[in-house]
Design a protein around this nucleic acid. Structure first.
Lengths: 247, 247
DNA sequence: CGGCTGCTTGAACTTGTTCAACAGCGGTGG
DNA sequence: CCACCGCTGTTGAACAAGTTCAAGCAGCCG
């Protein structure tokens, strides 16, 4: 069984077979499926569990009173929603599915117990929380400083790298199951301008984007256009001091 | 002694005298002072301690290759820098002082030991980390969706609420020791436009901003202009179930 | 006084928005 | 089987918001 979360955590540190089994056990807990556009959690709800995306894409978003919407994060397979939400009384934003999504609802106590008995896993989960914070910060740079072209290119780079970390790419191709309107809400641009920007990237022979499939024709060039530096994703086996002893 | 961090954490939960003493002990560790514009940590550094701002303002920022700069967060007295930075190999951004700053360099082990012996404190520190994540998300909304006027008004509201939580306001007045250029870097606008926007807020009798002092003339009106909803700051004594038993 | 930094103003310019219309495609029901 | 619908993507043209450049002013410090 190939679990995206495990695949992702192993970008950071090596896990023992025992570690992996413990993680797998978590994800067989309560599996749920929902359709595109359905909310997983709504602003104002009291959260009571941790959600782990198993397949499909979701997003965090906020809506202003007048209807403007900002997508604050894309949630991909292997992503955890709010590891320690138990501390806060209510959600200050909503999470919804963009495609059909299957996710595991993980009991908080079970997760806490696992953390106690598997220090490497704990550390890896910390890593995943800190990376999602680093991503959130990079989005501020994206929204605040980059031009439309840089912004879209950066978003595509980030999504590609994150999907690759969970094994959801083949060569330079991956799924991109979001509408241009959703990209617009994530990049702070109008849908019309996202459209024109994508065409510009196409015309520069940087990407092919048809249907729901993205192919990057020249990754280095796309990174250059985007001013993309993957250091904020903290991949590359950082937790070297914490490798599993078992093979 | 009035420590901003304690004051802030008590917005969330009540702490016992014992809890507070333990926190105070941390902050007498190594106290450092630095001047405006000095870096506390630079991108690429390997972080080795947690920093707690005692007085003065700092900021997190990133600089793009061509010089564009984004301020991703303002660090106010009582703010902790990267609670669990121990997991990551190197900083993906820099932190610098905006004014003269005094901060405590807290030893990681000491903090870990405190966490074990004081569960309420642990929970309160969790709350502070989650709030800073929520703030980071709200900044995405600010940068992505709000107009210049809304953006500046929102930033002022946020800073005012955060300063009030650490007791650094008197009525509707507080310090605002940042230049318009720094506000520009934080709001993704040009310095010129920040200037005009501030004048607009002044002309609408919403604020007085002279020297380094901000006075809000009509907080409700400013909140309305900003589309500001303080829920993301998670104040209001949420950790009710975790109040200290001692008086 | 001189020089620096930060604030203010005007005017031309650029980037991205808005509005409106249309094309393509898949699904549905008559 | 075809007509129709709704959603997504595409295009054009007018428009608005914010940027850039350039200059002047104010306050502060040595």
């Amino acid at each position: 069984m190939d679990i995206p979360l495990i695949r992702k955590l192993e970008q950071f540190t090596r896990l023992s077979g025992n570690d992996k089994r413990a993680l797998e056990d978590l994800t067989v807990d309560r599996i749920r499926k929902i359709g595109p556009r359905d909310n997983i959690i709504h602003e104002g709800d009291k959260p009571d569990a941790v959600y782990l995306i198993l397949s499909g894409w979701g997003c965090r978003y906020k809506t202003l009173e007048d209807g403007r919407r900002q997508v604050m994060a894309f949630l991909l397979p292997g992503d955890l929603c709010d590891l320690n939400i138990f501390v806060l009384r209510e959600m200050d934003h909503s999470i919804c599915a963009l495609t059909a999504v299957t996710y595991a609802e993980i009991d908080g106590e079970a997760l806490a117990a696992l953390a106690l008995s598997h220090p490497r896993v704990t550390r890896a989960l910390w890593w995943e929380a800190l990376v999602s914070l680093a991503i959130q910060r990079e989005w501020s740079v994206n929204l605040g400083q980059r031009t439309a072209t840089e912004r879209i290119a950066h978003l595509l780079c980030e999504l590609f790298f994150r999907l690759r970390a969970v094994g959801l790419t083949t060569d330079l191709t991956c799924d991109l199951p979001v509408t241009q309107a959703e990209l617009a809400d994530a990049s702070g641009l109008s849908a019309v301008h996202v459209n024109r920007t994508i065409q510009e990237l196409r015309a520069a022979d940087l990407i092919v984007l048809r249907g729901r499939t993205l192919t990057i024709l020249d990754l280095e060039a796309l990174k250059t256009v985007a001013l993309f530096n993957p250091n904020y994703l903290h991949l590359n086996r950082e937790g070297g001091g914490f490798d599993a002893n078992e093979p």
